[in-house]
Design a protein around this nucleic acid. Structure first.
Lengths: 119, 119
DNA sequence: TCACTATATGCCGGAGTGGTAATATAGTTG
DNA sequence: CAACTATATTACCACTCCGGCATATAGTGA
């Protein structure tokens, strides 16, 4: 049961959920937030300082990440600490990274003319 | 070099590329196309028949998938056959599927009350 | 209570995108 | 050449979403 992909049997409704998750990750700022949270939990102000944007913007991104179940929250007094709730997001990003870098490498091969042309 | 995620060291520009790839996958119709292509190459008309939409719509989705390097094309006479060019997309989808199903299972636990309440 | 801080929410303008219809292009066949 | 098929492109509308601003809410401390 390992070679056959799980996606193949998904209904259209289930595909919507998968697409939703991808959409949450389709934003550089949100990926930055996930990067920052990998080191450990951070509050909204710290995230706002790291990303160079406004605090409401960060709050909005965090909301989407939380609703997607990717990020959790812990409130201590006045400040809200956020943390990674689903570490598989890093696996996702790594897969994309390797895929992208291989793609770039293949292009470089073509440009350099070192690759054997197939057609 | 296996435990540390590759994403952590990505520059903002590189994150844009990662986000772009996620955005390509953030569309149910495109996921459907990838599903259909998993069985083997199909032409645009066949895809249009399977997805219940218009042919220009399919062409546009295919264009994005091709520009992202996820789908390739082979032209035979008048018809264009499309195929999976980057099988890692299925790994991506599978990761999301498992993550989502675990999330759903956790929610079911809470609703069923079988999980020990934490607060 | 008031002032202060931390975070969330609502509104708006601009950019991007999915869907569709109409049209254009390319290839095939006669 | 004309007629037909397969695919791509364009124009347009509706919708979503990101960003910033202003404001609201909540918690703290005096």
């Amino acid at each position: 049961m390992s070679t056959r992909s799980r996606v193949l049997s998904l209904s259209p409704d289930a595909l919507d959920l998968v697409a939703d998750r991808f959409r949450v990750l389709a934003e550089p700022q949100r990926l930055r937030i996930l990067q920052l949270l990998h080191d450990g939990e951070k509050n909204v102000t710290e995230l706002t300082d790291s990303l160079q944007t406004t605090q409401p913007n960060v709050s909005k991104h965090l909301r989407m990440l939380q609703e997607a179940g990717l990020v959790g929250r812990r409130q201590a007094g006045n400040t809200v600490y956020c943390f990674i709730a689903d570490p598989t997001v890093f696996d996702l990003c790594d897969l994309v990274c390797t895929s992208l870098s291989e793609r770039v490498a293949a292009h470089a091969q073509l440009l350099a003319g070192t690759g054997r042309k197939r057609r």
